[in-house]
Amino acid sequence: MIKLSKMTDYGVVVMTQIAQEPDRVVTGPDVALTTGLTVPTVAKLMRMLARGGLLLSHRGAHGGYSMARPASEIRISEIVAALEGPIALTSCVDGSDLSCVVEDSCPMRGGWNKINGAIRQALDDVRLSEMMPPMPYPHGTAKGAVRKARAAAAL
């Protein structure tokens, strides 16, 4: 089975959440409240996504993270690469940062490139905006959901 890690799945969740209000600076606790993920997990993902150039980090008292580009300009392959590294099914494909001990004598050498390229292309073809649910917050905006969650937690 070819499977992306939970962190990559969660990374797409975090990115779609932040993209709901692209001009807003959000914090890890805000995103954790609205996604159901833990604060440490969200914080780690946000740092990795910022290092990958997908989020912008804002320092200071009103700091946090915001979108680096619109969701329609972010490819799912970019999120996968930011969280997992190069997209490579096996260690012998172009772009892999792994090495294979039998690569020089392997009859499949280079044969996986076509399959790896097809998967990479499929991930390139899907934009973050296409992964976003049409109406994720029944109570209005993400900001409203955060306020409601904070109010419920205060009771």
Rank of each mutant, 00 (worst) to 15 (best):
D9R: 15
M15P: 00
Q17Y: 15
Q17M: 07
I18Q: 02
I18H: 02
A19Y: 03
Q20M: 09
Q20P: 02
E21T: 04
E21S: 02
D23F: 00
D23T: 07
G28R: 02
P29M: 04
D30A: 12
V31F: 05
V31I: 14
A32G: 06
L33Y: 09
L33I: 03
T34N: 04
T34S: 12
T38M: 11
P40M: 03
T41F: 09
V42G: 02
A43I: 03
A43P: 09
M48D: 14
M48I: 11
L49F: 06
L49I: 01
A50V: 05
R51S: 08
G52I: 05
L55P: 03
H58K: 06
R59L: 13
R59A: 11
R59V: 05
A61R: 13
A61E: 10
G63N: 11
Y65L: 03
M67W: 01
P70K: 15
A71D: 08
A71E: 01
S72G: 09
I74Y: 02
R75P: 00
R75I: 04
I76W: 13
I79A: 08
I79Y: 07
I79K: 05
I79F: 06
A81V: 10
A81Q: 14
P86G: 06
P86Y: 13
A88S: 11
L89H: 15
L89S: 11
T90W: 06
S91N: 12
S91L: 03
G95Q: 06
G95M: 05
S96C: 14
L98A: 14
L98H: 07
L98S: 11
S99R: 11
C100Q: 11
C100S: 10
V101D: 14
R109D: 13
R109M: 04
R109A: 13
G110C: 08
G111V: 01
N113F: 13
K114E: 04
I115D: 13
I115T: 12
N116K: 11
R120F: 08
Q121W: 15
A122P: 02
A122T: 10
L123D: 08
D124T: 07
V126K: 10
V126E: 06
V126R: 14
V126D: 01
R127K: 13
L128V: 07
S129H: 01
S129L: 10
P133R: 00
P136M: 01
P136C: 02
P138T: 06
P138K: 00
H139W: 14
G140C: 03
G140Y: 02
T141L: 06
T141C: 05
T141P: 00
K143T: 15
G144F: 14
G144Y: 09
A145N: 00
V146W: 06
V146D: 06
V146Q: 03
V146G: 01
R147Q: 15
